[in-house]
Design a protein around this nucleic acid. Structure first.
Lengths: 224, 224
DNA sequence: TGATATATCTCGAGT
DNA sequence: ACTCGAGGTATATCA
């Protein structure tokens, strides 16, 4: 990893064109060849960057001033004009063991599958990942009166999820053994727009309480 | 901006739980207080980070080893355990003039709004961001014969955009003052799948030439 | 402040 | 190579 602090101008030409006027910034060259340009704010996003794989052609004088041209396979270009170098150092880091996440995503489906009664008294689970021609429905259930219910589960309920469930319902309702099939859109948080669309399509919205579900699960576990 | 190269372990507890095992990494502390941890690959994303505003409590020995605890308003925490410091330097960068972009969707919408005649002779703009219950339509126009036309603009035209326009059209066509409403899907590049879906729904596809539109705009500007 | 749409989104999985 | 879905998405705009 090479760290350069330099006064520079930067131009990107690719999916769009973007320009950075002259200022002092951090330029980061990583072992995979990628280059990013950072200002002194924002943790997450560089001002400008080129993702790997890419190649850098450096044309500089002895004092380090000159031009770096970073090009990727698609012909996108990042051109960095170095006007003054304040710092330039390289460090060997080695491979990173990587980030280990303890996610919530798959857990939600598990928890709800184990506790379908939170959707309605007397409900039972038919199966998780119920297959259809266009992909699996998260949960297929039967309500207390035996009507089929397709449940789509999201962490954040947005309009895309409603569209997805709509497509499933359209298919499932063509199956005379299942029809009529109700739809439930379940998420930890449902955006107003998604709710509006869902209700317009007679899809019921349910807001999931992750901690409550986990609590139920702990109780279940303790029973066995 | 402070640059630290150090062997470290990192834990994040917040919207999820994530752990980084011991390795040598770059730790970046920016003037806004934000902290990010980078491995020696990937230009864009840090392995772990805390966005501003946030505060860091540092408890270290003389050699720099010890613990950094970064906390934000929501109570999310990034804990960095420093095991060995290879490099530690601060640099003053000053404010950045910021990135100037050209060619994003907002520009396309502006340009097309100013030149609806490129969609058809005699067309006129009713308004940009025409409101509906599920969000605004990019452009609402009337064609030469006075029929309403909803225009959805994307930089890259994919299936999602066609779905979006379809929803708008369905709603708009319920309004007797507007119906019938035609749909136009306009983008710099339209994926074959999106085109197929659009045509299946009688939505017309228009490929926008950004440079041509910008040229028209320059001409317009020169006239006034 | 909250909701919404965009992004050079990135990144990974599956086909 | 492409598509689809998720992201601690982040970020800007607008009500």
């Amino acid at each position: 990893m090479r760290l350069v602090i330099a006064r520079c101008r930067v131009d990107y030409v690719g999916r769009l064109t973007a320009h950075l006027a002259e200022a002092t910034r951090l330029i980061l060259v990583k072992a995979d060849g990628s280059v990013s340009v950072h200002a002194d704010d924002r943790a997450y996003k560089p001002l400008n960057w080129m993702s790997p794989p890419c190649a850098t052609v450096i044309e500089v004088r002895e004092d380090g001033t000159g031009t770096w041209t970073v090009t990727n396979k698609g012909g996108e270009q990042l051109v960095i004009e170095i006007l003054e170098v304040h710092h330039d150092a390289s460090h060997v880091l080695g491979l990173d063991p990587g980030l280990v996440k303890d996610g919530v995503e798959a857990h939600l489906q598990q928890l709800l599958a184990a506790n379908v009664e939170t959707l309605g008294a007397g409900w039972r689970l038919v199966r998780r990942e119920y297959p259809t021609a266009i992909g699996p429905v998260d949960l297929m259930c039967r309500d207390a009166s035996g009507v089929a219910v397709a449940v789509e589960i999201k962490r954040r309920g947005e309009i895309d999820g409603v569209e997805q469930l709509t497509r499933y319902l359209e298919l499932l309702n063509r199956d005379p053994l299942l029809a009529p099939v109700r739809g439930i859109f379940a998420a930890q948080e449902i955006k107003p727009q998604a709710r509006t669309l869902a209700e317009d399509r007679a899809i019921e919205c349910v807001v999931l309480d992750y901690d409550m579900l986990r609590g139920l699960d702990d109780v279940d576990s303790r029973l066995f």
